[in-house]
Amino acid sequence: MSKCLKALAISLAALLLLTGHGSSTARPGEKKGALPGAQKIGIGREAAAKEIEGWTISIRPDGLGLPVGKGTVKQGALLYTERCASCHGEFGESIGRWPVLSGGEGTLKSHDPVKSIGSYWPYASTLIDYLRRAKPFGAAQSLTNDELYAITAYVLYLNDVIADEEFELNERNFVSIRLPNQPNFIDDDRETTERAFWQRSPCMKNCAPGGAQITGRAKLIDVTPEPGKGPKIE
């Protein structure tokens, strides 16, 4: 091979390496075959059980994550009045724009559906999980496990899910609680039920008879924030 051809062969090989078409795609300093996602890179350290325990607050409908504890409806009533009622109302009816917790049974098909825990939520575990991670608003993760069970019991009582004031909720009987609206949830079915929205050739000309008539105006409702009412400009 002439010097010239040899040089060409070397540069071709280099080019193949660079463009990744060669037999090896390893970059300098990289372990052979250590493509992202294939082999472990070894960054991060093993999490200690105590660290995981301190942050694992999630609870599932099957009871996974339920803390050990207990509380009665009666105990919950006192705690609820003290820490929840100022926003959610004495009976979960809510004050102002704060979320409604109770009532609304039979309203889901109406034009004013009330999506309360009793009328809409599918699982009681959602309630105790949310209380544990986010409540009271502004003092998250401050409730003891017994307080969690007591407030949950009382809110379920407000929703007629628990009937007895003396009922004690705990980690053993929790999964027996069922919310009435659970069967009325379905998984996303848009790609089948709304198949009509996939159109081969949408209409381009004279798509509806007559001229378009205005049927509604935002101006009539008049709820647009007024200019100048936005956040303060620094």
């Binding site: 599932r60 099957d62 999506k115 939520w121 599918p122 959602t126 986010a134 009325n184 379905i186 079915d189």
Partner: peptide, 29 residues
Amino acid sequence: GDQPWHHREETSKYTDLLENGVARRFTFV
């Protein structure tokens, strides 16, 4: 995990209530 958690933001909120009272969940796209 091996199943969804059904937390507040995927049950009480971010589910799509239809006219017949049934609600779609996990409408991610």
